Simulated scan of single mutants.
Amino acid sequence: MAVRPGFGRQRNPLRRRSDRAQAMSALAAVLLLVAVVPVAVALSVGTWRHYSAVSENEQATRHLVSATVTTSDPETKLARSHLATLSWSYPDQVRHTGQIAVTQTTETGDLVPIWVTDSGQMVSAPMTTLNVWLDTLGLGLGLTFAAGLIGLVWYRLSRLWLDHRRTHALDTEWRRFNELRSEGFRDTRG
């Protein structure tokens, strides 16, 4: 048996149209995954560059200082953490205040490390290199996984539909065959 190129366009009674459609569906799913990989890599590189710049800027403009707990909320003391009012001075001995959640054991007068901007305003901790890596990997792998999942769902749904059509066609053929059998075979050789 010779194999000829052309994705099954030649006449073969054993190769049904639905078989070709199923093969094309599988090919489309694989091509989707292959096409998404370079896009995921490009987006990951862009994300890495962007968040690296953000991290570098945040690490240059945010500073770790010690703040003194001035008051703590006694009503939330039974929880694992509670709100406390803090006081700190940065950069020119100007007094600043703010509230954050502290642990249950934190008391008035304790020192708590906080991050502040150049102007002394309280902010979150700067983005670390680990955060940049996790965001970059999360985007790239997440996009690739989503494309693979979409391709798999596409293939499975198309195969389910094609299997249904094949079963229906087979039932129709069996009905025709049984009708011919019940009428009796006629000798057409003449």
Rank of each mutant, 00 (worst) to 15 (best):
residue 128 T to D: 11
residue 66 S to Q: 14
residue 189 R to I: 12
residue 163 D to H: 12
residue 125 A to L: 09
residue 137 L to S: 03
residue 177 F to E: 11
residue 11 R to F: 11
residue 187 D to F: 01
residue 2 A to L: 04
residue 115 W to P: 03
residue 9 R to H: 08
residue 54 V to M: 04
residue 185 F to N: 01
residue 18 S to G: 12
residue 45 V to E: 07
residue 170 L to Q: 08
residue 101 A to E: 10
residue 139 L to Q: 04
residue 116 V to T: 11
residue 39 V to H: 08
residue 139 L to S: 08
residue 106 T to C: 09
residue 86 L to W: 14
residue 104 Q to F: 01
residue 66 S to V: 12
residue 10 Q to N: 03
residue 123 V to C: 06
residue 8 G to I: 01
residue 122 M to Q: 14
residue 81 S to Q: 12
residue 112 V to T: 10
residue 94 V to N: 11
residue 164 H to W: 12
residue 27 L to P: 02
residue 21 A to I: 04
residue 110 D to M: 05
residue 5 P to V: 03
residue 75 E to W: 00
residue 58 E to T: 02
residue 158 S to C: 03
residue 5 P to W: 02
residue 109 G to Q: 09
residue 26 A to K: 06
residue 162 L to W: 04
residue 20 R to Y: 06
residue 168 H to I: 15
residue 75 E to K: 03
residue 61 T to P: 05
residue 147 A to L: 09
residue 152 L to N: 10
residue 23 A to Y: 00
residue 156 R to P: 01
residue 44 S to C: 08
residue 26 A to V: 07
residue 20 R to I: 10
residue 47 T to E: 07
residue 4 R to M: 08
residue 167 T to R: 15
residue 61 T to W: 04
residue 122 M to W: 08
residue 31 L to D: 07
residue 52 S to E: 12
residue 146 A to Y: 15
residue 190 G to A: 15
residue 24 M to C: 03
residue 187 D to Q: 07
residue 59 Q to I: 03
residue 120 G to K: 07
residue 53 A to P: 00
residue 104 Q to R: 12
residue 43 L to F: 14
residue 41 V to H: 11
residue 1 M to R: 04
residue 137 L to H: 02
residue 11 R to Q: 07
residue 52 S to V: 00
residue 65 V to D: 13
residue 147 A to K: 08
residue 181 R to S: 13
residue 13 P to W: 02
residue 10 Q to V: 01
residue 181 R to N: 14
residue 31 L to K: 01
residue 135 D to Q: 08
residue 36 V to R: 03
residue 67 A to P: 13
residue 163 D to A: 13
residue 151 G to D: 13
residue 99 Q to C: 09
residue 14 L to T: 03
residue 98 G to C: 13
residue 66 S to I: 08
residue 28 A to I: 14
residue 162 L to C: 05
residue 23 A to D: 05
residue 186 R to F: 01
residue 47 T to R: 03
residue 117 T to C: 09
residue 138 G to M: 11
residue 29 A to I: 13
residue 89 S to V: 11
residue 183 E to K: 01
residue 187 D to K: 04
residue 78 L to D: 02
residue 17 R to E: 12
residue 190 G to P: 10
residue 161 W to T: 15
residue 135 D to H: 05
residue 28 A to C: 11
residue 122 M to G: 02
residue 58 E to Q: 15
residue 9 R to E: 05
residue 46 G to K: 12
residue 33 L to Y: 10
residue 31 L to W: 12
residue 7 F to L: 05
residue 26 A to H: 02
residue 176 R to V: 06
residue 183 E to Q: 10
residue 145 F to N: 08
residue 104 Q to V: 02
residue 40 A to P: 08
residue 132 V to K: 02
residue 141 L to I: 11
residue 23 A to G: 01
residue 139 L to P: 05
residue 169 A to I: 02
residue 144 T to V: 14
residue 172 T to Y: 13
residue 140 G to Y: 05
residue 72 S to M: 02
residue 16 R to H: 10
residue 14 L to A: 09
residue 175 R to L: 14
residue 127 M to Y: 05
residue 90 Y to V: 11
residue 102 V to T: 05
residue 19 D to K: 00
residue 139 L to A: 10
residue 136 T to G: 03
residue 61 T to E: 14
residue 114 I to N: 12
residue 157 L to C: 03
residue 119 S to T: 13
residue 78 L to P: 00
residue 41 V to K: 02
residue 147 A to V: 12
residue 144 T to H: 01
